[in-house]
Amino acid sequence: MTAATDVLAPAAAPAPRRRDFEVVFALMAALLVAAPFVVYPVFLMQALCFALFACAFNLLIGYVGLLSFGHAMFLGSAGYVSAHAAKEWGVTPELAILLGVLTSGAIGLVVGALAIRRQGIYFAMITLALSQMIYFFCLQAPFTHGEDGIQSVPRGKLFGVLDLADNMTMYFFVLAVFLGGFLLIYRIIHSPFGQVLKAIRENEPRAISLGYSVDRYKLAAFVMSAALAGLAGATKSLALQNASLTDVHWSMSGEVVLMTLIGGLGTMFGPVVGAFVIIAMLNYLAQFGQWVLVIQGVIFVVCVLAFRRGVVGEIGALIRREL
């Protein structure tokens, strides 16, 4: 009788899941290589940076179960540092990005060490509070130029050789950064370390009782997520040639939650789809002015009510694959 209560029949040895990932990844990469010949590259660069940002956020919420409500601080502060380094110090783009990533990683270490002591809503509130502190710092610090932000950031020459001033060249650089970051996240999730992260997400007391110091694992994941969000922010400030308060504002932290939810929380490709949907809406619905927010709200409500797993999550459930 007990067998009848099992929802699924005994599953056979799993088909190689990697194959699925490789096919979809190749498809996505091909689409993104072809895209700038059809769509305005600057728009695509913006979408790619947000996609990487959402993927970094998803690493925490989807695979460790930590809802950070202050991820804008990593995006924004890395953006400021890279923009400042490229404009005022004249460093090469790769170095500017590296400085941005190190900054957000360091902030992630401090914020993470404080926040992981609490769980659930308290974790979210602490990250929000600390990101507001970063916001006010960025508002007041002289090098960020307050409300004006850092404008006309030079893209410079990659490794001192490749001129990124051309939109197409810059696009393929951004694409390389995005794909690299995306694959790194895939690797993290599917590593022995990632396996422990999933165990913590699934049942934290049990993971402790098996002898894992879960706080150290959470902190490591938090720093990785922060650094990757910083990579997105740093690349974005060079691609769009500016760094502004928008990127450190709390509403940006909300935006990334929205992107991840719409695309599909805990799926590899979901945040990418979500980011493209949201950025496309912001750009192409700009003519509706403030109504964009209302439209966004409606889409969000529909998403939560009708397809809770997000676009990619629902498709994955339909074809019984993990995307």
Binding site: R187, P192, F193
Partner: peptide, 20 residues
């Protein structure tokens, strides 16, 4: 997940989980 503890507390996020 329990057997994996034999590796100690490792943080090797760069390795494939096929080592497991």
């Amino acid at each position: 997940v329990a057997l994996q503890r034999e590796r100690g507390e490792s943080f090797d996020f760069w390795r494939s989980k096929s080592v497991l």
